[in-house]
């Protein structure tokens, strides 16, 4: 069966992709050919200490961070889509990303509040705000949720701008770069700070992965079979926000990525979240690692990774919008 082959590909691909990505980068010293040459025939210009440093302290943390970020963005998107019964949302569309970005920038600027905590708090605030703005007569329609997301995005982008205006030029540059979605500052410390919320978010969603199916049918459908939809939704939103805002806090805004992956997964593997949650994580990680390789090497300078995901995601979003007959009901 086709699906089985694809499943094995998704499960087996991450390791070789991560390994190969280690040898991709601007430094000629650590290219795969240089390494092979060194091992086979010896290479005088090869500097093993530098190579070690680049591989272990620069590329390894970056690749792992990219992988985990891609993975949690994908499951965060998948969970948000199920909870809102809306195939057009992800952390970016709902404003979760800009909320978390503002929170993280605030944390960087004030320096008293931990960045991750601040990102999570404002990410959660953004999702809550978006949800309550979109809610009318106890219903949240597909289009009104997207419109509420635009407003939420606007609010937190404006707040972020205030911080940018107040920051000195040097800090400003790094904030701007970081909001575009960027990994060039990745190091082991960032992995350490992001690991806990990312893992917690992943764990919550992984435990609730079958229940995502029930809530995706609707609140009343979930309540009538004995679940408490409100409690379940709060847990799912907590998981999705933990994962999503942790990703934003370390990598900035990687727009629409949480929309693209769940849809690709759905097209290949169907919609059963019990089966697809882990697949979403692995495919999200692998795919973002590949995109990051392009962003690192395509030009002489680094192109922010969020640029790529937006350019891929935008036509995807339009196509989905046309396909889904998104209505106001």
């Amino acid at each position: 069966m086709n699906r089985k082959i694809f499943k094995w590909i998704v499960y087996l691909l991450p390791l070789p992709v991560i390994m190969l990505s280690l040898f991709i980068g601007p430094s000629g010293n650590t290219g795969l050919s240089a390494l092979v040459k060194h091992l086979l025939i010896g290479n005088e210009s090869f500097n093993p200490e530098l190579a070690y440093n680049i591989l272990v302290n620069v590329r390894m943390p970056r690749i792992l961070l990219v992988f985990f970020t891609g993975g949690v963005l994908a499951i965060s998107g998948a969970a948000l889509q199920a909870v809102f019964r809306n195939p057009l949302v992800d952390p970016y569309v709902l404003g979760l990303s800009s909320g978390a970005a503002f929170g993280a920038a605030l944390g960087l600027w004030v320096a008293v509040i931990p960045v991750q905590l601040s990102a999570f708090t404002f990410g959660l605030a953004a999702v809550g705000l978006c949800y309550f703005m979109a809610r009318k007569n106890k219903q949240v329609s597909i289009v009104s949720l997207i419109l509420a997301g635009i407003i939420t995005n606007g609010i937190f982008t404006a707040l972020l701008t205030i911080i940018q205006v107040l920051s000195d030029p040097f800090k400003l540059q790094s904030i701007v770069h970081w909001t575009m979605g960027n990994f060039h500052n990745a190091d082991w410390v960032k992995i350490q700070t992001a690991a806990l919320p990312m893992f917690a978010g992943f764990l919550i969603l992984f435990i609730l992965r079958w229940k995502l199916n029930v809530i995706a049918l609707g609140d009343e459908e979930a309540a009538s079979v004995g679940l408490n939809p409100r409690k379940l939704k709060i847990w799912i939103l907590l998981g999705a926000t933990l994962a999503g805002s942790a990703a934003v806090a370390v990598a900035g805004i990687i727009g629409l990525y949480g929309l693209i992956i769940p849809h690709m997964v759905r097209m290949i593997f169907g919609v059963d979240n019990q089966k697809t949650l882990l697949i979403n994580f692995l495919m999200g990680g692998t795919f973002l690692t590949l995109i990051d390789n392009i962003s690192r090497t395509m030009a002489g300078f680094e192109i922010p990774i969020g640029v790529f995901t937006m350019l891929i995601g935008a036509p995807f979003f339009i196509w989905l919008l046309k396909k889904s007959n998104a209505g106001w009901e």
């Binding site: 199916n213 459908e221 759905r266 169907g270 059963d272």
Partner: peptide, 12 residues
């Protein structure tokens, strides 16, 4: 909203 299979729907 989502194209679940019949069996997945019944299972809920």
């Amino acid at each position: 909203v989502f194209p679940f299979t019949v069996k997945d729907v019944v299972l809920t």
